[in-house]
Nucleic acid binder design. Structure first.
Lengths: 338, 338
DNA sequence: TTGTATGCGTTATCAC
DNA sequence: GTGATAACGCATACAA
């Protein structure tokens, strides 16, 4: 309710002085400054962001779009991004793309309308090519910087920060090969989604290094990458008498599905079959047999992504960079052969 | 970059006409309207929200504060709230209180500065009394409506929408009593946090109805209400030879901790000990023994909360109401005695 | 050190 | 039906 005008009046100064005082300008007498602030507090004055933004041209807002927020991985990522953005004195404006490209697009339109100073896109886990992203030219046209976090879209020419999933997958597979596993099934998502493609690449590299052929039928594409799908799929493989001694799932929820499915059918994990996942979320810890996984350091991802973003905000025309975070193999019981 | 001015100019009309045309005013000639819109699209015109808000006095924004976003419960709640808010043509502005009252307070200050038209508070799971909430008077002073979702703060005189946790707990305990369990341990959180207090009340009511005394030592206060704490606590109880035939945990993660702890020590769930939780999140489904729990319909909670909020937005001075959602007992293996 | 005046990009109130 | 024009609340260049 109270506006700058009122505060200025009550403090016996002009609007300009009041504004400068509240924003801590050094060219205001200490005495005046204290008085203005006093009055402002007393009347619970809160400046209107809208007016500030309009007048100054800076919103102090960073838009963040994420596929969802209820999976532990994305939820934590959002929290970390929020922290990084606040650390820079900015505010996060969050939108959910709900796993849909059209909503991602709309979210960014909103961002533009809200005059965000930068955009963080947490890419969808779908096979998407840069040419499908209309918002890229929109952002470029307005010179609004953009980064990807935790994944990226092919050929987008946008900086990104993510864990080296190819290397992570490589380490995971190597870990299994080292302990003698050879028939390693991989529950993968959409082949052409970036994160899946990278993991498969790592899988192949590990096999190649061991001079082993990859049995293509062991790379199983899953329409859905959740617990239930993995649970059922595992049961089907067992029933079909498929031969395998290990399962790697594209995420921990699926790995847990495999573990439970195996144990319910009296297979021992890891003695009969080893199981591993990705992401190091709680599912892997709370499994009846703790699951080996690849940790993605979300603090680092967020730090890197936000840093790349602010580089662009602070000076236009910095070259497009990528920041690759090292994956961490977390070995747990599910792959420890006695 | 392009502003209303430009669009108007290019379409050969005035700013006023352009504005009315874009906002679909009926008093603009169809022909003109189409032309203006055409030009606007062509130049990728996106109006500035800030300017709109400033000029119209309506931001179209609802602020939502939540303790976190990475737990499935809150994450889903946020998604549902977002959907409800969008359904009304508004935009959600999300802030994380990170389980801290001071951050909840700050978030709401930001909301006020952003001219939100309403606030949804997802209360912290802590013993907090209305007198500690400074933002209530702030919001009242500016006539910004507010609601609580999924819980509430005592004596706040703010409308809220939540599941009847007392009744849920009552049904859960009754379910166990009915199948012969008597020594029912309850892993509770802070006694004076609303959700815990309600659950305990339901527990007592069920016992009273069966004419049974409540053994106070069976109500165990937990400093931390997560998987690890429950896992360890359960182990300790077993080691101390505590007698009990069932465990109810204040949430599903803790219930899973209990299940795993029991099974690792070769106790059968439910044959030796029954286990139940609250919230019906994935942990209860993916447990090696699926866990009986109380479902909280987050769609309904969100619908109710947002509805209460918009009642206030649409007309000032509506009386403070509460909306209570019925809990649903989801019986699974963990409490099914053979 | 402080005050005056202008502009930010819309919407809304008027006339025409 | 459409076009001027005055707000909206603040920041800021410039003047004092």
């Amino acid at each position: 309710m109270p506006k700058l005008q009122d505060i200025a009046h009550l403090a016996g100064v002009s609007k300009a002085t009041a504004s400068l005082a509240l924003n801590g300008s050094p060219r205001i007498k200490e005495e005046t400054r204290r008085r203005v602030i006093e009055v402002a507090n007393q009347y619970h004055y809160i400046p209107k962001r809208y007016a500030q933004t309009l007048a100054s041209g800076k919103s102090g807002i960073i838009g963040v779009v994420t596929p969802n927020v209820e999976s532990e991985f994305y939820g934590k990522l959002v929290r970390c991004l929020d922290r990084q953005i606040q650390r820079r004195g900015y505010t996060m404006y969050l939108a959910l793309s709900n796993e849909r490209l059209d909503l991602e697009e709309i979210a960014i339109q909103h961002f533009v309308g809200s005059d965000v100073e930068g955009v963080v896109v947490v890419p969808l886990n779908l096979p998407i090519h840069a040419s499908q992203l209309q918002y890229l030219s929109l952002l470029r046209g307005r010179e609004i910087p953009c980064v990807f976090a935790s994944s990226f879209y092919e050929d987008a020419d946008i900086p990104y920060c993510m864990v080296d999933l190819e290397e992570g997958s490589y380490r995971l597979v190597t870990h299994l090969l080292k302990s003698g596993h050879r028939k390693i099934i991989f529950y993968k998502g959409f082949e052409h989604a970036t994160p899946t493609a990278l993991r498969i690449k790592g899988y192949r590299r590990a096999f190649a290094e061991y001079g082993l052929e990859v049995a293509e039928s062991n790379l199983i594409e899953c329409e859905s990458i959740d617990y239930d799908y993995a649970y059922t799929l595992t049961a089907q493989l067992l029933e079909a008498n498929r031969e395998f001694d290990a399962i790697i799932a594209v995420n921990d929820a699926m790995a847990l599905g495999a573990v439970n499915s195996l144990r319910h059918r009296n297979y021992s994990v890891p003695d009969d079959i080893a199981v591993a996942g990705f992401d190091n979320v709680n599912y892997s810890r709370v499994s009846p047999v703790p699951i080996t996984t690849i940790n993605q350091d979300l603090d680092e991802i967020s730090w890197g992504a936000v840093d790349l973003l602010f580089q662009q905000i602070q000076e236009k025309g910095v070259p497009v960079q990528k920041r690759i975070i090292e994956p961490e193999l977390v070995v747990r019981e599910s792959t420890l052969r006695l």
